[in-house]
Amino acid sequence: MTTRLQRHRALREALVLIVLLVAAVASMVWVSQRPAGPDELQISVATLRSQAAELQQTLAASAEASVNPRFARSHALQLAKSVDAARKELEGMAVQPPLPPVQDEARPLAVQIASAVHAVQQPDGLRSASAAAAGQRQVANRLDAIEATLKNR
């Protein structure tokens, strides 16, 4: 049914599409491969700050019995995925220009959030929810301060 002329035209159209697709993918790869700057570090810190605050809120709600343990565990489990991703992102970030004091301060805080969110899954993970919530509030506050420092550079 399709004639030779149509197939030639189709090939030309396909080539144009492929070139556009390759250009789009190449630019996406270029953007993602660019070395991270202070802005990217700030975004990563902000993400972790939000997650710490959310974990704190979940633990506090559990301690106050405004949420049931099943919800608290399930929500922490769902949050854990994003926390692990954010922690890995921060670990692997090579910031240009380097900001070792900032990253060195943020990394252990990220580990604390990850440990806390996974600890909720333990059988007695919610026993000291109140204390854990207070801990996460401190983590969130420190990350907030780091974020403010980066923003004001």
Binding site: S50, E54, A61, S66, V67, N68, F71, H75
Partner: peptide
């Protein structure tokens, strides 16, 4: 609270904060 909500459960936390387990 410095939270950037991403999950449906996060939204539910706000209702729980006001009305407890029933709100949740």
């Amino acid at each position: 609270h410095r939270i950037e909500p991403q999950l449906p459960g996060t939204a539910a936390l706000a209702a729980a904060a006001q009305f407890g387990k029933l709100g949740l």
